[in-house]
Lab assay of single mutants.
Amino acid sequence: VTTYKLVINGKTLKGETTTKAVDAETAEKAFKQYANDNGVDGVWTYDDATKTFTVTEMV
């Protein structure tokens, strides 16, 4: 189990959260659900070296 981080660069919501998951795919599903629940829709990137997902909403 690995800890993954999500950085949110939203128009109205900004911040970070973490989740523990067995792999990046599982973490991504959890983060996308979290973003969807919070009304964040944007471009996703993932950095495997730092285990960090970033979602950026276009203005």
Results as ranks from 00 to 15, higher is better:
Ala30Pro: 02
Val22Thr: 14
Ala27Asn: 00
Ala35Met: 06
Val1Asn: 13
Thr18Ala: 07
Ala35Pro: 01
Tyr46Thr: 01
Ala49Trp: 09
Trp44Lys: 00
Val59Phe: 13
Gly10Arg: 05
Leu13Pro: 04
Asn9Cys: 11
Thr56Gly: 03
Thr50Ile: 07
Leu6Asp: 00
Asn9His: 10
Ile8Tyr: 08
Lys11Phe: 15
Asp41Gly: 10
Thr12Asp: 14
Gly42Gln: 02
Val43Cys: 08
Thr12Arg: 07
Asn38Gln: 14
Tyr34Ile: 06
Asn38Asp: 03
Thr54Ala: 04
Asp48Gln: 12
Lys14Asp: 05
Thr56Met: 05
Ala24Asn: 06
Asp23Ala: 04
Lys20Ala: 14
Thr17Phe: 14
Val22Ser: 12
Lys32Met: 08
Glu16Ala: 08
Leu6Ala: 02
Asn38Gly: 04
Lys11Glu: 08
Trp44Met: 03
Glu25Ala: 13
Ala27Trp: 01
Glu57His: 05
Gly42Thr: 02
Thr26Ala: 11
Gly15Val: 15
Val7Lys: 08
Asp37Glu: 12
Glu25Leu: 11
Thr3Ser: 07
Thr50Lys: 08
Ala49Ser: 13
Thr52Lys: 03
Gln33Ala: 11
Thr26Gly: 07
Lys29Trp: 09
Asp41Phe: 14
Val1Trp: 14
Glu57Ser: 07
Asn38Ala: 10
Val1Ile: 09
Asn9Phe: 14
Asp48His: 09
Asp37His: 10
Glu25Thr: 11
Glu25Trp: 11
Tyr4Trp: 07
Gln33Ser: 15
Val59Leu: 14
Thr2Lys: 07
Glu28Trp: 15
Lys11Arg: 15
Tyr46Ser: 01
Phe31Gln: 00
Thr19Phe: 13
Tyr34Lys: 03
Val59His: 12
Thr2Ser: 11
Thr50Pro: 02
Glu16Tyr: 13
Thr17Leu: 12
Leu13Gly: 07
Val43His: 10
Ala21Lys: 03
Asp41Pro: 04
Gly42Phe: 03
Asp23Ser: 11
Ala49Leu: 09
Lys14Gly: 06
Thr56Leu: 06
Thr19Cys: 11
Ala35Ser: 05
Phe31Tyr: 02
Leu6Gln: 00
Asn36Cys: 12
Lys20Thr: 15
Thr17Trp: 15
Ala21Gln: 05
Ala27His: 00
Val7Ala: 04
Val40His: 04
Ala21Asn: 03
Asp37Leu: 11
Lys51Gly: 04
Ala27Met: 01
Ala49Asn: 08
Lys20Cys: 11
Thr26Asp: 06
Gly39Thr: 04
Val7Glu: 04
Val55Gly: 00
Tyr34Cys: 03
Glu28Cys: 12
Glu57Trp: 12
Thr17Tyr: 15
Asn36His: 13
Thr18Asn: 06
Ala24Glu: 08
Glu16Ile: 10
Met58Phe: 14
Val59Tyr: 13
